[in-house]
Design a protein around this nucleic acid. Sequence first.
DNA 1: TCTGGGGTCCTAGGACCC
DNA 2: TCTGGGGTCCTAGGACCC
Length: 423
Amino acid sequence: MKTVFALVDCNNFYASCEKLFRPDLKHTPVVVLSNNDGCVVARSKEAKALGLKMGVPLFQVQDEIRKHGIVCFSSNYALYADLSNRVMTIIEQEAPRVEVYSIDEAFMDLTGVDHVVDLLTFGKQVKAKVDQWTGITVGVGIAPTKTLAKLANNAAKKYPATGSVVDLMDPDRQKRLLALVDVSDVWGVGRRTTEKLRSRGIHTALDLANADPKTIRSEFSVVMERTVRELNGVSCLDLECVRPTKQQIICSRSFGHKVTDKQELREAIAKYTTRAAEKLRGEKRLCRVVSVFIRTSPFIPNEPQYAKTLSAELPNPTDDTRDLLDVADVMFHQLWRAGFRYMKAGVMLADFYEHGAFQQDLFRLDSTKINSKALMTVVDQINHSGLGNVFFASQGVSPQWTMKREHLSPAYTTKWSDLRDVY
DNA sequence: TCTGGGGTCCTAGGACCC
DNA sequence: TCTGGGGTCCTAGGACCC
């Protein structure tokens, strides 16, 4: 049977979430900022119309923001995650197989649906339901492959006459759209690949679709070969309906100001380690490898630069915050060099195991701390309860290095405790 | 003064083994 | 007077995504 995919994508998602609770801003340009209020990461349609670019540093556009009365929000991921769940729940009710691809996008498997209902009509129904039940507007792209569904979705956003729903099942229609699309707008084609393709005379999505898959494979990779085939309507990428288990957990942040004090940086590492351990327990996994990195800012070229990562393997896999703090702290002391202004630090966990499914270290038969599970469970419960916060002394009591979030919206739908600078 | 965070997959090359 | 070749595993780095 011919495959049919739909991509449902929320419009200006973070900005739309903020506007939901601020009807007074309905027609006001709004932007959402990255952590530390560093960059613009989402723009309402009014902000886009003013020419604000995605990813620009806030300080570069301060004048425009003042001039046009653009309203800024610090990112509030607890709010966006909550609204995302509501949208995804609706989409999951509309199709038997759904892949939640990101916080604001989901692929639906519509194979066979066209025997029952016209695909365009179906797409419009999904859109109407999400709009009505959540207030979030979405675009829908329908096509025989995920890559074409992405392009159909882009077209739905770009051309208002489509009513935000595009059915791209027809091959002639595919060709006509592909001829209009720059190759850099194809899913999976990034900056470097765009340059390389252009140097070979491939400028539009149609040029890429007409390229020889074998040549593309040898000059690029098997990934790009799949893209070529997908552009020709041959489905190579299936839905991933069950979230694959994580291979690594990263917790890192840029600091609100440059850090030069050893103890301050040490506390930051402890905090990230603690957060990473919480995520690890959320995944119900144990980890064996811990990495720590610290770095200065590459954006200040005249300053002395330093960046280094260290990794360590634990004797036995663990999810106990105390074990991870111990090893991270040892590495931190090895990493630390005085005389630099540090911009960012992070902790990575890797090499995961399921509980009870690993080889014990022969010479340390049981290094598990007494009552580890009970203690960690209680710590997690208290921190998620919204009633309080317990933490390890090494994190410090009043950290100076926390994120800058000067434009944070309230906890409209979530608990205040979710607004900790996690995520 | 001020430039996000968290992930995945693929490839090339070295080490090592038989 | 001559120094294989193939397979596997691991790691670092690149590229991409949202």
